[in-house]
Amino acid sequence: MKAPINYIELPANDLVKIKRFFSDVFEWQFSDYGEQYTAFSSASAGLDGGFYLAPLSSSTEAGAALVVLFSDALEACLEQVVEHGGRVVKPIFEFPGGRRFHFCDPCGNEWAVWSLPEA
Rank of each mutant, 00 (worst) to 15 (best):
Q80D: 13
V25F: 05
I8D: 13
Y37T: 09
S57Q: 09
S71K: 01
F101H: 00
A64Q: 04
R100G: 12
F22I: 06
E118W: 07
C107M: 08
S58F: 01
F22N: 12
E79R: 13
G46W: 04
Y7C: 10
F21V: 07
G50M: 05
D72F: 07
D14M: 15
L66M: 10
S42Y: 11
V82S: 03
A12Y: 01
F51I: 08
F101A: 02
S23V: 04
V67P: 04
E27I: 07
D14F: 13
T60E: 11
S23G: 13
V25N: 00
P106A: 07
G97P: 09
A64D: 02
I18P: 00
E35C: 05
H84L: 09
F22K: 05
S42A: 15
V68C: 07
E118T: 13
V82R: 12
A76K: 09
R100Q: 13
R20P: 06
L15I: 10
M1S: 15
A64E: 01
G97W: 12
A65K: 07
P55S: 13
D105I: 01
A112M: 05
V113N: 00
F21S: 06
A65I: 11
D72T: 08
G86T: 05
M1G: 13
H84D: 06
L47T: 08
R99C: 11
L56K: 07
L78E: 11
I92Q: 05
E94T: 15
K2L: 11
L47H: 13
Y37G: 11
P96K: 10
A73Y: 14
F93E: 13
V67A: 14
G63A: 00
F103L: 03
A64M: 01
E75M: 04
A39K: 14
A73T: 14
E61H: 07
T60I: 11
P96T: 11
S41W: 14
F93G: 11
F51T: 04
L78G: 00
E9Q: 13
K17L: 15
P11K: 05
F103Q: 00
L56T: 05
A119S: 14
N13S: 14
C104K: 05
V68D: 08
W114A: 12
C107P: 01
E9A: 09
G34T: 07
Y37K: 06
P117C: 09
G50I: 02
T38H: 07
A65C: 08
V68Q: 07
F30N: 05
V113C: 01
G108H: 00
P91V: 11
G46Q: 10
I18Q: 03
F30S: 06
F26T: 00
D48L: 06
L47V: 15
F22G: 05
P11V: 01
F103P: 00
S58Q: 06
F21M: 03
Q36I: 08
C77F: 02
A62F: 02
S41E: 14
H102Q: 10
P91A: 15
A73D: 15
G108S: 04
Y52I: 09
